[in-house]
Amino acid sequence: MGRQWREALVLGALLSLGAAGAAWSSGGGGGGGGDMPSMSAPSYDPAAEYVKAIQALNDKKYKDAERALTHVVDAAPKNAEAWRLLGVANAGQNDLKGARRAYEKAAKLEPDSIEAHRGLGAALGGLKDPKAQGELDWLKARAAACGTCGEAQALEAAVKAVESAMAGSAVAASGSLLFAGPAAGDRAYVAAVSLINEHRYDEALASLAAAREALGPHPDILTYQGYTWRKKGQFDRAETYYRQALAIAPRHRGATEYYGELKVERGDLAGARVMLARLDRICAYGCAEAEELRRWVDAGREP
């Protein structure tokens, strides 16, 4: 029985129950028994701290947001959303140097992020740093290439924000007046799994990005981001998400299984066996994830 078929059954059961509090039998991609991502984090988890930060930002409690987001980036240093929102929190306190550092990290991790370049350009403009012009040029070039694409409005607002900061106006904390909370993240997550099951991978990635923006570095979301990039044939990118998920939740069954499958696809059977041995330790009495990966390892190729 294929992994995707089982996931489709899980999704169907969730939706047929009306969903909000229904059990997700193995977490995102076999995570181990949460409900929705916003409800299944451990007692101290970067995703939980991220949700606290979102609420603090919505309440304009920028110091509280900074504190929570510092916990997030300490635990998940490759989470671009957390660094970007840390920039928002710093800018909200008029700490433009701190904002610049945070936005630089966000832009490095996600070079195509409009909001990261907007925030960085505005912080640099507020500091009278000539590098602000480079960010403004990047945004203008992106806007010219975009034309009337779906990003046109965000790019226009970003260009105006950086120009205003360079002209000496106060630096806005963010382009958004309200940050999405856990319920929106859960909805985006459910939509993403449905899209994955329909092989609509680009749309799934957009939904997963929305879920991660609302919920932060939750291992279930990261696992599915890795899975989706893997299905698009971008193995290196997929691996970064699996590694992030396992750094946060080393016993995450779904990330362990999928990372093992990726290793099989790359011809790294020794590495896949390491992942299988880890699953055998996690699942003392056996689990579907271990059996699925064992099938891959035995076959030595994608079924």
Rank of each mutant, 00 (worst) to 15 (best):
S194V: 00
T148Q: 14
L222A: 05
R301W: 03
P217N: 14
L177A: 13
A299Y: 08
N90L: 02
E156S: 15
N90A: 13
A82I: 02
G34A: 15
G32P: 06
L276R: 12
G92V: 01
N58I: 05
L222E: 07
L86E: 09
Y227T: 14
R3Q: 10
G119Q: 11
H71V: 02
P111C: 13
V10L: 06
A68Q: 08
A80H: 14
A22T: 00
K160L: 10
G168H: 11
A132F: 09
L120S: 06
L11Y: 15
R251Q: 13
V162A: 10
A247N: 06
E213G: 10
D280C: 00
D280K: 12
A270F: 01
A277C: 00
V88F: 00
A65N: 11
A255Y: 01
G185M: 09
K263I: 01
G121M: 13
V10T: 12
G27R: 05
L222D: 12
L178G: 09
L139T: 04
E104Q: 15
P77D: 09
G254L: 06
R295T: 12
V51Q: 14
E115H: 04
Y103K: 07
V171S: 12
A172D: 09
G134T: 00
H71L: 10
A99F: 04
R294I: 01
S207M: 09
I282S: 08
G150Y: 02
A91H: 02
R243Q: 10
A211R: 04
A249S: 14
A144P: 06
Y44K: 14
R253W: 03
M166P: 00
P77R: 05
E289V: 07
E265L: 05
G267V: 01
K232C: 00
E292W: 05
G31A: 10
S113Y: 02
K105M: 15
E156L: 13
R301I: 03
M166C: 01
L205G: 01
C287T: 02
A122R: 13
D202E: 13
G87Q: 12
A23S: 06
K128S: 11
S207V: 01
A210R: 13
G119W: 01
T256C: 06
M39I: 07
G21M: 03
G28H: 03
Y241D: 02
F179T: 07
E135C: 08
G286A: 06
Y224M: 11
E261K: 09
K105A: 13
